[in-house]
Amino acid sequence: MSPVIKRGGDKFTLPSKYLLFILTILCTGLIAITFNTSVFNGSVNSVAATFVVPMQKGITTVSTYIKGVSDNLASIKALQDENAALRQKVDDLTNENTGLEQDKYELTKLRELYSLDNQYSDYKKIGARIIAKDAGNWYHSFVIDKGTDSGVVVDMNVIAGGGLVGRITDAGPDWAKVQTIIADNSSVSATVLSASENLIATGDLELYNEGQIAFSKLVDEADKVTVGDKVVTSNISDKYLPGILIGYISTIEEDSNNLTKSGRITPVVDFEYMDEVLVIMQLKKTGE
């Protein structure tokens, strides 16, 4: 049976074989379109698998790396800040410890001066700080921060560290210069306390580098003076008040004249390290 198609008032008859042919062509076209679409989708998927997916993986890897670097930088910055804070704390503690050590040192020196003040309580004294010294390690002369405005005058005796340092040789309104007993031109009339024998203690340019002073003109026929005996300023000294400790006999030698002895004295004062001294506020009276 053939399909009938009306056309106007007439009837149009389509043979069955043509209809079958048309339907076959139509199905074939649909199959081709479907196949081509599948191929296209496969191509797209293949392209995505080849390029897009690795790119996504790369982006993910880079993002992860950047995040890791950023986290590491943040950690490093935090550690640097913490390290800086710790360094500052160490500096603060170091400064605090230095201050405490300085306070302890000054307290020790003040105690020594206080003890010395009591030791020579018969004399009026004022404390002074050393503000300048000659070149070298040893204090053979130096300047203090007290002067004529404080009543300090030339030839006043200066003590520290348990004994005699020297005497004032020059003075201004707020300063004074001290020549110590280890200076090359220094000379002190002294007495060996245990034997009541007199001698002359003199500074020596070579010896003061060893912290020593020389003595001479010791008359000791009975050999009463021995190493370790205490030496003090004598009553016959023209510049120094009597009874101030100078030091201790360290060596004794017989002079070539066989009448006197000479040697060395180890001063009680450490002339390598001094910061503060006491000035005895009175002069030796002539004939005293």
Rank of each mutant, 00 (worst) to 15 (best):
I252C: 02
F51Y: 15
W175F: 15
L20R: 04
I33D: 09
T180W: 04
I22P: 09
C27I: 15
D145K: 03
L193Q: 15
N157Q: 03
T50I: 09
E82Y: 08
I252K: 02
S250R: 01
D184R: 05
I5S: 13
G172A: 04
P3N: 12
I5K: 11
E221I: 09
E254G: 14
T94S: 11
T226Y: 06
Y273R: 10
S70W: 07
K177R: 10
N198E: 08
K89C: 02
A48T: 15
K11C: 09
L193R: 13
N235H: 11
L164Q: 00
S189A: 02
I236A: 04
A195V: 12
T226R: 03
S121F: 05
K77D: 14
Y240R: 00
N157A: 01
E101A: 13
G243S: 01
V52Y: 08
F21L: 10
K109V: 15
F40Y: 07
D270K: 03
V188G: 00
F142I: 07
I246H: 00
S75W: 11
T98E: 13
G58M: 03
T64M: 14
I181R: 00
N41F: 04
L20Q: 11
V178I: 08
V188K: 00
T260F: 04
E272Y: 09
V47M: 10
I280D: 03
G42T: 04
I249L: 01
L79N: 12
L245I: 06
N235E: 15
V153W: 01
I213M: 02
T13A: 08
D170E: 14
K177V: 06
K57T: 15
S189I: 00
Q80L: 15
L26Q: 08
N198Y: 07
E82L: 06
K285M: 08
S196L: 06
V219R: 13
I33A: 05
V165R: 00
E82N: 14
D229Q: 03
Y273K: 12
K11V: 10
D149E: 06
G136T: 05
S115W: 06
I236D: 06
Y105K: 07
T233Q: 00
L23C: 14
Q212W: 02
V269A: 00
S234D: 13
I252S: 02
D71Y: 13
D149N: 08
G8E: 13
